[in-house]
């Protein structure tokens, strides 16, 4: 027998789930509507929008480009974020709190300001907007998240692990590569998926730092502003499926890893 408060909370939770999923579900359904007009009611069904999307070179290019940018920026974020965490984790020095704050800064600056300050910055260091600029912008934004995730895992690692490796003849680099890095693996996997999602979905940095080649979110944004084609539903659905699948897989993989080696 559930108490009234329990019933109310449960109902509220499921109502919120509906609020979260309904718009996305409508979008998926709309992608199969056989009409040039986006809206209800739906009278006929088709798959032509999907066929159209898979033949549209602009969309395919944008998809590949976004994927490339995401992968490169994720790889860079992992290396730099781990480096920062390994530096800050054990180090005790005057001004550590300040350095820590600077490290977290990109994660808390409002997106549009972060993008615009980057736009000015790349100009000041002589870079043009384009692939390099987007990758740099995404990497700067991702590094704090990687560093924080790695730091929390490092904190859970017994000091004796590295000491044992050193005791057995490893210098600090070998100890790091053979003992610390495998220990960090679950958090690195989690961080890389998180960075992939952040980078693939990012709009504001790609918009302000990009060159002529649009990323997928920028392409969708442009389409939305220039009048909505039903193909957008199909593109968005593909993005939805890809990201949700990636996220779910990562969630399971990291949970399993953390379960077996803690």
């Amino acid at each position: 027998m559930m108490r009234p408060s329990q019933i109310a909370l449960t109902t509220f939770y499921w109502a919120f789930i509906v609020y979260l999923f309904l718009p996305l579900a409508l979008m998926v359904v709309m992608g199969f509507k056989d009409s040039n007009f986006i809206g209800f009611p739906i009278n006929a069904w088709t798959t032509r929008w999907y066929l159209q999307v898979f033949q549209d070179t602009a969309v395919l290019h944008a998809f590949g480009y976004t994927l490339l940018i995401s992968i490169v920026s994720t790889a860079l974020s992992l290396v730099i974020g781990t480096w920062c965490a390994v530096f800050l984790g054990p180090a005790r020095f005057w001004g550590r709190a300040l350095v820590f704050a600077v490290m977290c800064l990109p994660a808390v600056i409002p997106g549009v300001i972060s993008a615009i300050s980057m736009r000015i910055f790349i100009r000041a260091i002589g870079l043009e907007p384009g692939t390099g600029a987007i990758i740099l912008g995404l990497t700067i934004h991702n590094v704090p998240f990687v560093a924080l995730m790695v730091l929390s895992r490092l904190g859970a690692m017994p000091r004796s692990q590295v000491e044992a490796a050193r005791d057995l003849g490893a210098d600090s680099l070998v100890a790091f590569l053979r003992v610390t890095l495998p220990f960090l693996f679950p958090s690195l996997l989690g961080a890389s998926i998180f960075c992939m999602l952040l980078s693939f979905d990012d709009f504001v940095r790609a918009f302000f730092l990009g060159g002529y080649q649009p990323t997928l979110p920028v392409l969708i944004f442009a389409e939305l502003r220039s009048g909505m084609s039903p193909a957008i539903n199909a593109i968005s659905t593909v993005v939805l499926v890809v990201t949700a699948a990636l996220g779910l897989w990562a969630e399971r993989a990291t949970r399993r890893l953390k379960g077996t080696r803690s």
């Binding site: 919120f16 979260l20 309904l22 693939f200 709009f203 979110p217 939305l224 957008i232």
Partner: peptide, 25 residues
């Protein structure tokens, strides 16, 4: 609760547009 948040800003904004439009759901 987490799953919808893996989808990006633009796609989710668009989903809201379908929900709220004049001929929306």
């Amino acid at each position: 609760l987490l799953v919808p948040f893996w989808v990006g800003e633009i796609v989710r904004t668009y989903a809201i547009m379908i929900l709220l439009g004049n001929r929306g759901f």
